[in-house]
Design a protein around this nucleic acid. Sequence first.
RNA 1: GCCGGGCUGGCGGAACGGUAGACGCGGCGGUCUCAAAAACCGUUGGGCGCAAGCCCGUGAGGGUUCGACUCCCUCGCCCGGCACCA
Length: 804
Amino acid sequence: MTARGEVAPYDHATVEAKWRRRWDETGAHRTPLDDAQRPFYNLMMFPYPSAEGLHIGHVFAFTGADAHGRYRRMRGDTVFEPMGFDAFGIHSENYALKVGEHPARLVPRTIANFRRQLGRIGAMFDWPRQVVTTDPDYYRWTQWIFVQLFKAGLAEHREGPVNWCPSCLTVLADEQVIDGHCERCGTAVEPRVLKQWFLRITEYAQPLLDALDELDWSEVVVTAQRNWIGRSEGTMIRFELVGCTQPEVSVFTTRPDTLFGATFLVVGADHPRLLDFAAPDRRAEVDGWRVSLPAAAADPDFSVGIDLGSQGVHPLTGERIPVWAAPYVLGSYGTGAIMAVPAHDERDWQFARAHGLRIVEVISGGNVAREAWTGDGVMVNSGDFDGRPSDDGKPRVVEALRAQGRGEATVQYRLRDWLISRQRYWGPPIPIIHCPDDGPVPVPEDQLPVLLPEVEDYRPIGTGRSPLASAEDWVNVPCPRCGKPARRETDVSDTFLDSSWYYLRYPSTEFDDRPFDRERTWRWLPVSIYIGGKEHSVLHLMYSRFIMRALHDLGLVPAPEPFPVFRAHGLLIKDGAKMSKSRGNVVNPDEYLDRYGADTIRLYLMFLGPYSQGGDFRDDGVSGITRFLARVWRSALLAAGDGTDESRERRRHRLIAGVQERYEQLRYNTAIALMMEFADALDEEAAAGTARRRDAETLMQLLAPLAPHITEELWERTGHRGSIHDGHWPEHDPELAAAAEVTIAVQINGKLRTTMRVPAGTPADELEQRALALPRITELLDGRQPRKVIVVVDRIVNVVAPTS
RNA sequence: GCCGGGCUGGCGGAACGGUAGACGCGGCGGUCUCAAAAACCGUUGGGCGCAAGCCCGUGAGGGUUCGACUCCCUCGCCCGGCACCA
């Protein structure tokens, strides 16, 4: 019998169950929030508890975040790692409707199932601090935040063009409309004009943009946010109007240098006050035209448009130009109207062609009879500006406009205000009472929460009103201000409002008289690291930044940004495609956890590829991890030596340095590769009876964040007291971690010819001498004199010689 | 169209401008076994060669450099974001 056979094999089921129970009993994952010396708030995106349960992608995401938290904890930080559930919203509600069970009864069940599964993945969640957004103790404070925003003038009830999803029977925020379709159900949205609640995120467009520079975030996400805010610098130009009730119209352009080529004006067909721009005798016709327009199409039709009969006065020439309306201009962006310069804008060019409007070249460089020229050039047909390069002309035109009081430089943002009203049931009621005299009045804070009433029929009704409207007893209340009969707001708020502040609640869950305790919040916020999917790049992360910033301006939180450090993990796919219920390729982790145990699955998922990039889940590589853990197990239990030889100490220090660096950077795949190499060597020594206890211990410690159960068991079995997870990160000496001897590549003309082993740090001139003296090199040089020898210490010697 | 990210063995993936392919899967050969599985050992980018070794090779083509997967230019394909945004 060999030495390897003397150890009983690792039994994951028994060991993992044992430690999960033990950790639970000892409160190993409870965080002492009030006396943390080095608080580390390890936040990961809380899930929406779907009825299907956890899928393997969640395990991937949470394992990477948990491993980082465990690493910080071993380094001595007090790590707070909470978890919760984002359980309001259309998803839950639609599912409840489908199965015919009330969401208030269904959601607790789906949460229970999620918790069961999350409990199996070996993460150190501080469960007693769980946050559930549907809990009245939570949404009470969601409502409270709304009231604070309302009082600060950041929540507004106003009429506006909105996106209506005819399938979900509710309005959607602009961000929740993808290519004209509902983000959730894919139905084409319809434009409607309704009175809605908006949060004025646009007030924060510039601060939100500026602060991006200071954030340590994954670059993709920063870029996505920058695009979404869409800052555009340009010029506002006012055209006087004649022949209609509207006295003037402002237009926004980024090309003031083309002003002299403006041959008509166009008002967006969906402009809320379109008719004011039309000549009185054309109003009826224009109105008929407007209502007959089809819903916005993906491919705009430039032939659609109507002459409004009014005229604009060119601010610099006084020339009169026609005013048109067309759907290719957006009523909701900028001022909702444009000056059309067909010679230098492709869309205007097409429109002018379709309607026989004038095309006047004012920037040379193209052939505007054939197509629009959008590049730079020299200004022509532009009065005093003729002959100037276009980029030079821009500020001068702006100056001329400013002198006339007809325009000025300005900035536009693509970002829209955040529409939060939802005409649905399953959300927190917006805490407002509409009084005929006082208008919208917030529900007094001591009367929060406004509980979601029990209604029999919670189906959306599609009339533009929420199902809550039918709860008459609930709706009719006296005005809190004047006491007259008034009505409650019946819309509920967007789910993204729930998730925009949950990280503030976790540290304060036990307080029922305040949303977040001042001392706790100042100690724990902002979050130390936030790890989540890049699919939330725009929506959740933007809304959270806005809410945090608004609360900061109200003096309620210690920092303007909630997440100074954000890392996006990749997406786990299956068979080359995103996992989704409709594709039927969702992997349920339960069977894998049963079969292999949590540690193996954790390691396997982290080994698939770079955490930041995700990977393709297939189970054909799990055996590599199983073998690895078997080696760790065996060698750790057999290692009894106490050798202090330098080479093995160096190897150990090198391993610590390498693994530590990779944990810092969330590069788990390569951390695991290093540990595998080390484990192979250690296992070989264990078989020979020479393995060192110290090496085995180091390996256990380094592996602990990724494989918490097996390492805890080994720690106990090898005679240690206390948990391996508490402050046991091994020290290393960078000097020792450096190799003592290095292999130098020796090249001739950049091609590898041989290598040599030398002591690390051998100086360049000695390396050169030794390399030139190598038999292989003298032979290949064959008498040729090196023209030059490039030497990089500890790396290479490259002999540059004339080619024979 | 614009902005990101990517393209490396049969596969997943490694490589501060310095020995391309670490680590793992799979394959091949072996040990053990009646046999198989498991485990373990060896081997594994392609081509040529008995061998020493040589040549080729990181999506394609150019460039910079003593030296390029890495930097620059052009192009192709894949993924993601934005998109009548004036």
